[in-house]
């Protein structure tokens, strides 16, 4: 198996593991949850600032 493919497969396989936990003091969060929260914030910010494609005639 190519190394890059192997890396990709191992990342996917790690999704089945108990999970990676990040902690700062008493605060702890699972990496997957943190990614989802960051992606939602990114979507929100992009939704506010990205121009919407102009469709056919609008009022």
């Amino acid at each position: 198996m190519e190394p890059i493919v192997h890396d990709f497969v191992s990342i996917l396989a790690s999704l089945d593991s108990p999970g990676i936990y990040l902690g700062w003091g008493s605060f702890q969060i699972q990496l997957g949850n943190l990614i989802v929260i960051l992606v939602m914030i990114l979507f929100f910010v992009l939704a506010l600032f990205l121009p919407f494609p102009s469709g056919r005639k609008r009022k």
Partner: peptide, 13 residues
């Protein structure tokens, strides 16, 4: 039609 302000990504979710 929809009002013009609906042409924004925030209204897509």
């Amino acid at each position: 039609d929809q009002p013009s302000y609906v042409a924004s990504w925030i209204y897509v979710f």
